[in-house]
Amino acid sequence: MNALWQKLKKHEISGQMFDDEIDLAYAVIDGIDARGERNNYRTERFQFDNHSS
């Protein structure tokens, strides 16, 4: 995962400024999707349960 993060920072979101964390999160999602399309592999998102007990 660290190697992917380094590539995303260098190639997908380098030089961009983000107003808040949600903008950064969407940029990361878009970057992963773009890399998947370019390299012809499937990407999939999932959500963690955030229900408090």
Rank of each mutant, 00 (worst) to 15 (best):
K7L: 12
F46N: 09
H11M: 03
D33Q: 11
R45K: 10
R45T: 11
K7M: 08
I13D: 04
A3L: 15
D33W: 02
E12R: 11
N39W: 06
W5N: 15
Q47H: 12
Y41T: 04
R45M: 11
F18N: 03
R35I: 13
I32L: 13
M1A: 15
Q6M: 10
L4H: 03
L24K: 07
Y26G: 00
N2M: 08
V28G: 01
L24I: 04
G31K: 03
S53A: 08
H51F: 07
S53L: 10
E44S: 02
Q47A: 14
W5H: 13
A34Y: 04
N50C: 07
Q16R: 13
L4E: 11
S14T: 10
D49R: 04
T43E: 00
N2L: 13
K9A: 09
F18E: 02
L8N: 02
E12S: 12
S14Y: 12
E44P: 00
F18P: 03
D20P: 02
D30C: 02
H11R: 09
D20N: 15
E37Y: 06
A3W: 08
Q16Y: 05
R42Y: 08
R35W: 12
S53W: 07
L24R: 09
S53H: 06
N2C: 08
R38G: 03
R42V: 04
A3Y: 07
S53I: 02
N40G: 01
A27C: 05
G31F: 01
A3E: 14
M17R: 15
G15I: 05
W5L: 15
S53G: 05
N39K: 10
N39I: 01
G31M: 01
L8V: 14
R35N: 09
L24T: 05
N39E: 15
G15C: 07
L24Y: 05
A27L: 04
Q16T: 02
Q16G: 00
A3R: 14
R38I: 01
I22D: 10
K10M: 11
I29T: 10
S14E: 15
K7C: 06
N40V: 00
M1H: 13
I22S: 08
M17D: 11
E37D: 10
L4V: 14
R45F: 10
H51G: 01
G31E: 06
L24F: 06
N2T: 14
M1T: 13
F48N: 10
L24V: 06
N39G: 03
G36A: 08
D49Q: 06
E37T: 11
K7Q: 14
F18I: 02
D33Y: 03
D23A: 12
D33G: 02
N40K: 14
E12G: 08
K7I: 09
S52F: 15
D49P: 05
N50M: 09
I32R: 03
W5I: 15
R45C: 05
G31Y: 01
D20V: 01
